[in-house]
Each structure stands twice: as C-alpha cells, then as structure tokens.
C-alpha cells in the first residue's frame, strides 16, 4: 500500500509538470509580457519606458527560459519560467498585482470557502442519495416517474436562477437572512445557511438522477435476486446490499471533489460576498491579475490529483477485494 502510494505520488509529478508547462505557455508564450503590459497600462498611452517599468516591478523583465547572460545555475534560475512557474512546486505563488502574497491570501481564504463548500457537499450527498434511494424503492411507479421528471426539470434550470431567485425570495421578500456578507464563528451561521441550501437545491436534479442510475444498475444484478429469493424485505435489501455495493461507483464520483472543496465555488461566493477562494478567483479574473489565476490553476490541479489518490485509498476501505499494489 505504501509502495503503491509512493508510486502514485511519483506519477503525479509529470502531470503537474505538464500543467505547469501548459500554464506557462498560455500566460507567457501566447502573449508576451510586453502584450500584457500594454493591456494593463491601456493600449493608447504606452511608452517603452512604462512597459519596462511595469515588467520590472513584477519581475517579468527576464528571459523566458534561458538566461544566456547569467553564469552557472543563474542561466536557468534567473528566468521567468524558473521564478514564476517552476517555483509553484514549492507552493511559492509569488505576489498579486496589488502586492500581496498570494500564498497567505490563499491560506486565509480557504476557511470561508470551506465553511460553505463542506456543508453543501455533505448535506447534498445525504439528500441526493436518500432521494435516489426513494426513487429506486418506488421504481417504475408514478412516484418514480414524477421524481425523475422533477430531476430533469431542476437540471434544466440555470444555476444562476437558483442563486438570484433564492436571494430575492429569502432575503429580499422574507427578510430571513442577510443578502450577502460573512463573519467567522457562530455568528456567521446566518450568512452561510442560504448559500448552503441553494447549493444543495442546485445539485438535486443531476445528483439524484446520477445515484438513481447507479442503484438501478446494482438492483438488476444476481445477488439482489438471491437476496429477494431468501425473503429479504425490499428495504433491507436496498440498505444492506444495494447501498453497500453501490459504494464503489459512488466513491468514484464523490472522493475526487473533496480536495477541490477548498477552492470554493465561483458563483456562490461572488453572489453572497463570501471572502473565499472562489470570489478571489473571480476578482482576479475581472482585474486581469494573471499571477493569481495562474496560481489557482496550479492549486486546482494539485488538489484534483490529491483527490484521485484519495479515491484509490477509499476503494480499499469499502471493498476488501481491492488491494493496491
């Protein structure tokens, strides 16, 4: 198991290098730092001096890959690639355009993001699985069909509608919770409850339908027929056999997203004014702060790969037949 994990982590390194090279190519080769400077300074009032100054302030006034002027290791390390891109492997994300450390910003903003994303994820999981089990229990009846129709309807509504509609109904019309804002501690509960509920409702359609498909696939298998033949009640069969056996496909979809919860949700956080990583990303996109976007891309793929490894580990926990070698 340990050997397997070490191998998986070693496999992850080339992928991260790939991500790193891709973002480097996207941000520095497709458009040179000069283009970015011109863009940031405004197309019209650009002088070569201003561009040089802009580049110097941000450390972009170096060769891209190879510094022929340097000596020894400086040839490689005194370049944009080394200082801006490769340094992310050490989790050194550099500074944003307003001069703050991106690393520290990420560390402080993870908390609020998690405060929304983690409860949404957990409550959502329970709600979707129970709804799917209910539909499976009443499969091929009018109730199942109505549930399925509801799922398709909910899936077809834009995610923006849930947020805007929810904010309008709950905050503006009923005055139950503040429209937006955030505060830490117990006091923050009134701020996070609406985003969580909306997040759960927004995923009911696709989530429940997905789990229903998994359960229906399991229920057609032979062991279920055996269980039924020995006189097990439908409920006992569903919970004791089907749910357990459906764990592998469920985990495949679920565990991967757990590390990504740290990243927060772009839409929810920006609509509800939550100072998490999602709103950080949106602000960076709107301000065209490329270093922040680059850092988030790298962090996102890092967390995704962690999720993949966690998925493998979780298999061994629910299914004793799976051994990682």
């Amino acid at each position: 198991m340990i050997a397997y994990l070490i191998r998986r982590i070693l496999y992850a390194i080339p992928i991260l290098i790939g991500v790193n090279l891709l973002t480097f190519a996207l941000f520095f080769v497709v458009n040179t730092p000069d283009d970015m400077a011109r863009m940031q300074l405004g197309i019209k009032r650009v002088t070569p001096d201003a561009i040089e100054k802009w580049k110097q302030q941000r450390g972009y006034d170096k060769p891209l890959l190879l510094n022929s002027a340097g000596s020894g290791t400086d040839k490689i390390t005194d370049t944009i690639f080394w200082q801006k891109s490769a340094s992310m492997f050490m989790l050194d994300f550099g500074y944003s355009d307003d001069g703050r450390s991106i690393g520290r910003e990420i560390a402080t903003r993870m908390g609020p993001s998690l405060a929304i994303a983690l409860p949404t994820f957990l409550v959502g999981l329970v709600v979707y699985v129970s709804f799917a089990l209910l539909m499976t229990l009443f499969r091929a009846t009018a109730l199942d069909m109505a549930g399925l129709a509801l799922c398709v309807l909910l899936m077809s509504v834009s995610g923006l509608f849930y947020i805007i509609g929810g904010q309008f109904l709950v905050s503006k019309l009923w005055h139950l919770v503040p429209i937006s804002g955030y505060s830490g501690g117990v006091d923050g509960f009134r701020f996070v409850v609406l985003p969580i509920i909306i997040g759960v409702i927004g995923g009911v359609g696709s989530g429940s339908r997905w789990y229903r498909t998994i359960f229906l696939e399991e229920i057609g298998k032979d062991y279920v027929r055996t269980a039924r033949a020995k006189g097990l009640s439908e409920l006992a069969m569903l919970f004791r056999h089907v749910l357990k056996n459906a764990m592998i496909p469920i985990l495949t979809g679920v565990v991967v997203v757990i590390p990504l919860l740290f990243m927060g949700s772009l839409l929810t956080e920006s609509f509800f004014g939550i100072p998490g990583l999602g709103s950080y990303t949106i602000d960076a996109i709107n301000a065209q702060d490329f270093s922040v976007v680059r850092a988030m891309v790298f962090l996102g793929s890092l967390l995704y790969i962690v999720g993949l490894i966690l998925t493998d580990i979780s298999y061994t926990m629910v299914d004793p037949r799976v051994r990682l070698q």
Partner: peptide, 15 residues
C-alpha cells in the same frame, strides 16, 4: 490527464 486535472472553469478563464 493533464488537461482534465485543471478545473475547467479556471482553464477556460485562463485561456
């Protein structure tokens, strides 16, 4: 694997 490991919104935003 490299492409799918980047969260799609971020990759789209960057591009």
């Amino acid at each position: 694997t490299v492409l799918s490991s980047i969260p799609s919104v971020l990759l789209i935003a960057a591009a």
